[in-house]
Every structure is written in C-alpha cells, then in structure tokens.
C-alpha cells in the first residue's frame, strides 16, 4: 500500500517532546551564562539580584506554561487529513465572518 501522508496520525505528546527539547537547549545556554557570571563577574548585590531575578523569572514562565498547557488533552491524536480539513474551513477561526 503506497504511503499517504494524509493518513499519518500525530500524537499530541510529540509537541511536548519538541518543547522539552527547547527547554533543554534553553537550560544549557542559561547555565553557560551563569558560568560566565560566576567565573568572570565581580561579586556585588546587583549581580546576585539579577541572577535571582533570571532564575525566578524562568521558573515563573515555565510554571505558567505548564499551567496553561495542563487542561489540554495530551493523549489525543490528530490525523493530518483532519488537520488539513479543519484549516481549510476557516469559519471556526474567524467568528462573525
């Protein structure tokens, strides 16, 4: 049976995997940054405050993302044909038109 891309089914949790990969790269660069500050920076209140602000802000942003993503059904799957059908019908995305 020839392969038909419209029959492809994508589980929703794959998007979480992509987001997790992004978070891993983000964490890596954040650690690089912190390493530079610890190794080459001069100890001061301003430095500690900004570092704490960055760490706290990151926790808040990731926490808010988790909170916003939690209500969605991640066990569901979407087939490419359904997705193409839904994007072709634009009325649901532009109410009133």
């Amino acid at each position: 049976m020839p392969f038909d891309i419209t029959n492809l089914v994508i589980p929703m949790w794959t998007f979480l995997g992509a987001y997790g990969l992004f978070l891993a790269v983000f964490s890596l660069y954040s650690l690089f940054n912190l390493y530079h500050l610890v190794r080459f920076g001069t100890a001061s209140t301003g430095l500690y405050a900004v570092t704490a602000l960055f760490a706290g802000g990151t926790v808040l942003l990731v926490g808010a993302t988790v909170f916003l993503l939690a209500p969605y059904d991640w066990s569901a799957s979407i087939s490419v044909s359904d997705l193409l059908r839904q994007t072709a019908s634009t009325k649901q995305f532009f109410p009133g038109k």
Partner: peptide, 23 residues
Amino acid sequence: PIFGPVITMFASMYVLCLWLFSF
C-alpha cells in the same frame, strides 16, 4: 484542541527566548 496548545507553546518559547537573550 490542536492549535491551542501549539500556540501556547510557541508563545512560551518566544518569551523564554527573549528572556534568555536579555540575560
């Protein structure tokens, strides 16, 4: 159910990228 989480994730990635770049 599909576009909602995708848009949320992209928005989160955008803000986190800005946050990291600012740092």
